[in-house]
Design a protein around this nucleic acid. Structure first.
Lengths: 233, 233
DNA sequence: GGATAACTTCGGTGCGCGCCGAACAATCAG
DNA sequence: CTGATTGTTCGGCGCGCACCGAAGTTATCC
C-alpha cells in the first residue's frame, strides 16, 4: 500500500540480522556455540529440543545472515560462530537480557551449573569464577589498570609464554571486558583474553570437563597460576 | 505438546531482547535515536512511516525490554536510548548488518548524506570523516597506540580541557573503537570518546546542523584541532 | 550390495504480530 | 469554553514463520 518512502538507514538489514537471534531455538543454538567449537546439526537439534528438519531451517538462516559458518564433512554438517564479532554480539545480547530463573531443576542440573560457574570458556576466553579470579588478581598486581594492560602486565604475559605480539597485530580490540552471567563481574576478553586462554590450553593448565563449556584447572595449572599471581586458585 | 525440557540458558530472554530490534520499524527508531537525543513518539512515527498508534505499541515494547527510557512531559512522550550499552548494541548490530543500497534517491538525500558523512555524532562520540580524522591524527601523533591511550595522549586531552579522570571513573570501557558505516574505518568511542565529544560541544568547537545527527566544525574548532593535532581539518 | 545414520526437502497447520483507522483521553493555546 | 495537537486503546485483518512428520538424498559401515 504505502509506497516505500521511509527514511531507512539500513533499518531493514539490521532488523533482518536481529531477527536471526530473535527466536528461542536459534538463540539457544548460538548460546551453545559460545563454547567456540563446532557442533553438528543433529547435536544442536537435540540441544534445542526440535526436530532435525527444523534445525536445518534455522541453521540455513543463521548461515545466510553470516552469524555462523558451516563445514561439511561426509554426512555431517558442522557449524560454528563465524568470528569473534559474532560471538561478541551474542555475548552482549545475552548479558543484557534479563537473567533466567535461577532455580536448578534437579541435582544433576545443579552440579552441572556449579561446574560451569567455577570455570568455563566464553567463546575464546576464560569465564566463570576462574576467569573473574584471574582478572581480579591481575588488577590487584597492577598487571591491568582499568582495562589497559600495563608494561609489567605485558612482561608477565610474555613470561607465561603468551604471544602478545600476535594479539596486538589484529584489528581486534586488544583488551576488552566481558560481563559474566554467574559472577556478575567483568573479566578479561578481547585479543589478549583469547591469547591467554589459548596458552592455558596449550600448556595444559586448564582442561575441558566432558563435552561442554566447563573447564577446570589442572594441578600444574593451579600451581603455575597461584605462584605467578600470588593468589590461591 | 513437547514438555519444556530444553536446555535453555536464557535463550528465551535473549530471543525476546533480540526481537525488540528484529523489526524494521523498531530498528529505524533505534537508529534514529543513535543521535543520543530524545525524540517524541510522533516524530518517530513520522520518521518510520507508520501510524501513531503503531509507534505507541513499538515504543511500549522497546521500553519494556529496557532498550529505551521514556520521560513524559505534558502531552509529549519523549524516549531515548536507555544507556550507552543499549547504544552499543544497536551500533554493533548495524555495523555487522549488510549495508543498504548506496544509491541516493534524490539530490536532497545526497546532500543530506554528504553532511552526515563529513561529521556526525554516534550516540555520544564523534563519527563520520571528522571522527575518523581525529582518531587517525591521534594515532599518527602517538596519542593513541592501538586502542590504548598513551601518556602523551592523556596529557593532550587534559590540555584540551577534557575531564579524563571522570571518564576513567566509570566501569565503562575507557577506550573503545566503533566502526563507521560511511568511512568503513574505526574511530574513537568509549568513555574517552564521549568525554572528548562533550568537550567539543561545550567549547563550541563543533555544532549541530539542523535537527539530525550531522555536525560541523566551527571556525574556532577547526583552528584549535588543526593546530593541536598538526593536521588540516 | 544392503542396512544404518545424518541431513534435506516438502506439504500442511496454527499462532504471533505488525499494521491501520476510528474512537477516546489528555494537554495546550486562544 | 472551543478547537487543535499528541498520544492511547481497541477491533480486525493478513502475512510471515516456527513447527512437525514423512519421504527423499547422501554418506558410512559391514
Amino acid at each position: 500500500m504505502r509506497p516505500a518512502i521511509r527514511s531507512d538507514d539500513g533499518a531493514a538489514e539490521m532488523a533482518r540480522l536481529a531477527g536471526s537471534l530473535a527466536d528461542r531455538t536459534r538463540a539457544a543454538f548460538c548460546l551453545a556455540l559460545l563454547d567456540g567449537r563446532a557442533w553438528t546439526a543433529g547435536e544442536l537439534a537435540r540441544h534445542g529440543g526440535v526436530a532435525r528438519s527444523t534445525a536445518t531451517a534455522h541453521l540455513d538462516r543463521l548461515v545466510d545472515d553470516g552469524l555462523l559458518v558451516e563445514e561439511r564433512q561426509g554426512r555431517h554438517r558442522y557449524v560454528r560462530l563465524a568470528d569473534h564479532e559474532a560471538a561478541e554480539l551474542v555475548e552482549h545480547l545475552s548479558a543484557r537480557a534479563p537473567q533466567p530463573v535461577p532455580v536448578p531443576a534437579s541435582l544433576r542440573d545443579a552440579t552441572k551449573h556449579a561446574a560451569l560457574a567455577r570455570g568455563r570458556t566464553c567463546y575464546d576466553h576464560l569465564a566463570g569464577a576462574l576467569g573473574v579470579g584471574v582478572t581480579e588478581a591481575m588488577t590487584d598486581r597492577r598487571l591491568l589498570d582499568g582495562w589497559t594492560l600495563t608494561a609489567t602486565g605485558r612482561a608477565w604475559l610474555v613470561d607465561l609464554g603468551v604471544d602478545v605480539e600476535a594479539a596486538r597485530a589484529g584489528r581486534r580490540p586488544f583488551v576488552r571486558s566481558c560481563l559474566d552471567w554467574t559472577e556478575r563481574r567483568p573479566h578479561l576478553a578481547g585479543a589478549i583474553g583469547a591469547a591467554l586462554c589459548r596458552r592455558c590450553f596449550d600448556a595444559q593448565w586448564v582442561e575441558r570437563i566432558g563435552s561442554g563449556r566447563a573447564v577446570r584447572l589442572t594441578p600444574t595449572g593451579r600451581r603455575v597460576l597461584s605462584a605467578s599471581l600470588q593468589h590461591e586458585f
